[in-house]
């Protein structure tokens, strides 16, 4: 019985990560496809999931150290520098669009997902605060 509870808890942990990744893919992929960077949905999903997973894992580990300053710093650095930059490099390997276009569209998609993710987290905290 206890093992079943641990398994369910493990699934909750993995599910939280999968939901965060899916949410990002749902927001970013239409922008990247309509922006003409690439139409390869599998590639977009993989790039987004790899950047998002690394972002979330580092966020969890970094929050153990000097919370919340370190987390906020990592959030800003990752969302505005590391993730867009790595995604630009990844899209450049497959896309036939110009570098300017790739930079513009990738930054747009990432900023939108950043705003949506922040709103989602704020709403979640507000709802948790209500109950």
């Amino acid at each position: 019985m206890e093992i079943l509870i641990y398994l369910i808890e493990g699934c909750i942990g993995a599910g939280m990560l999968f939901i965060a990744v899916k949410f990002t893919i749902l927001i970013e992929s239409p922008i990247i496809i309509s922006g003409g960077v690439t139409e390869n949905k599998k590639y977009i999903a993989s790039i987004n999931s790899i950047t998002n997973v690394i972002f979330n894992v580092v966020l969890v580990f970094i929050s153990f150290y000097k919370w919340p300053v370190s987390s906020i710093l990592w959030y800003i650095i990752a969302e505005f520098l590391l993730i867009p930059f790595s995604e630009i490099l990844a899209y450049r390997a497959i896309s036939k669009a110009s570098v300017k276009q790739i930079i513009k569209i990738t930054y747009c998609a990432n900023l939108l997902s950043f705003v949506a993710g922040s709103l989602f987290v704020f709403i979640l905290i507000a709802l948790l605060g209500l109950f």
Partner: peptide, 26 residues
């Protein structure tokens, strides 16, 4: 603990799957 372990296992699964897909697509 179990939630954290599930989170890390999910992260590893997603990273490996993504690397395989990226290599294949390229």
């Amino acid at each position: 603990g179990p939630i954290f372990v599930g989170f890390v296992i999910g992260a590893l699964y997603l990273i490996i799957k993504s690397i395989v897909v990226i290599r294949r697509e390229l």
